[in-house]
Write a protein that binds this DNA or RNA. Sequence first.
DNA 1: TTCATTAAACCGACTGTTCAGTCTATTATA
DNA 2: TATAATAGACTGAACAGTCGGTTTAATGAA
Lengths: 201, 201
Amino acid sequence: MESFSTELRRRKNVQEIKREIAWNTKELFAQKGYSATSMDDICSINNRSRGSIYYHFKSKEEIFLYLIKLNTQEWMDSWRKIEGKYKTATEKLYALADHYVDDLTNPLNHAINEFMTGQVVSQQILDEMLTLIEMPYTLYEQIIKEGIERGEFKPTNPESVKYVVIGLFNGLSTFYFTKELDELRRLYKDAVDLILQGIQK
Amino acid sequence: MESFSTELRRRKNVQEIKREIAWNTKELFAQKGYSATSMDDICSINNRSRGSIYYHFKSKEEIFLYLIKLNTQEWMDSWRKIEGKYKTATEKLYALADHYVDDLTNPLNHAINEFMTGQVVSQQILDEMLTLIEMPYTLYEQIIKEGIERGEFKPTNPESVKYVVIGLFNGLSTFYFTKELDELRRLYKDAVDLILQGIQK
DNA sequence: TTCATTAAACCGACTGTTCAGTCTATTATA
DNA sequence: TATAATAGACTGAACAGTCGGTTTAATGAA
């Protein structure tokens, strides 16, 4: 019991270090993409040696996957925390756009895209990435279906609307490289305005 | 006069070879992105040696820039050829979406995005790329303004709508990696449906 | 028509750099 | 003291670009 407890407190928790490394590295992947982010970059931004990074992660790819998983889960978790504040699907769609923009300080979607097309990866990794990418899709789907059920939205094809909205949010993120964040936030709001004008009853 | 004409016909036109190499290489950049496309790949798909490629292009970067320029110009030229067939801004928007999808057999936008973020390039090259990227924006702008002037569209903010549509088309292209082309074409049409429902009078 | 010459076009081995990952030694901690 | 955690030099592979050599095609002269 006592020795077990000691074991758990042996050093700074390994999981914490892994998370710290991954979060620190997010900025690099977001700004440079996957392949242009070197291990030297990663060591530098984390203030750790090569050996130290490799003690915690088997490869660069593993850091990337770990980060994407972490980022996706946290993004969805934090959405879950705030979505209750909104009563209508309309409000939720605006809020989701805002939530999406919140992550645009360091967007990973471009790095994900590059990774999946440019790297030679196993089918297993590809499938895993695809699952991760599609996880947030359920949120969009829920909002749209809810809007239809509650009579806010026309009985449109929810599947199609879902992909349009996802594509739109994804596509607008490209302007991240040329526009200020508050400009972007406004643009996302305008985009949702537009979509809603089309689907609202 | 006679010698001048002979000079031009010395061998297969150099410009033709450059175009051929660039077009052959498009598929690689589209499928793999910029950095994951190696010079070996490029030699292979062109059935030419290293020396031969470097005789025509100074660098991999120059091939890429040349191709983007070529592709953008051809895309816009072919749009100019067909736009006269459409009478309304509404029709034009659908046609433009279709035209966009036509180029989705080998989309270069992802490679462009990767190149601009991941490669260390001069400010001059960056500016040049940005100009190229923004060239087609004028087409979108014209259609939207025309729609407003002709009374087809509400007097919305054309600037904002322009970016929304561009972002949308760009973002939907990500599904290129997971959906069939005809599915994609349908999705683009649905997207334009949605937008139009919002902006049509 | 043939041949010699010349320059364009092409070839592919080579080069130096970059890079992800390895591994031995060292340090830190319990 | 033993083990976890870290350091950083090293390694082999990959890569874009170089460069000396070869081939090709056009041209003009005989």
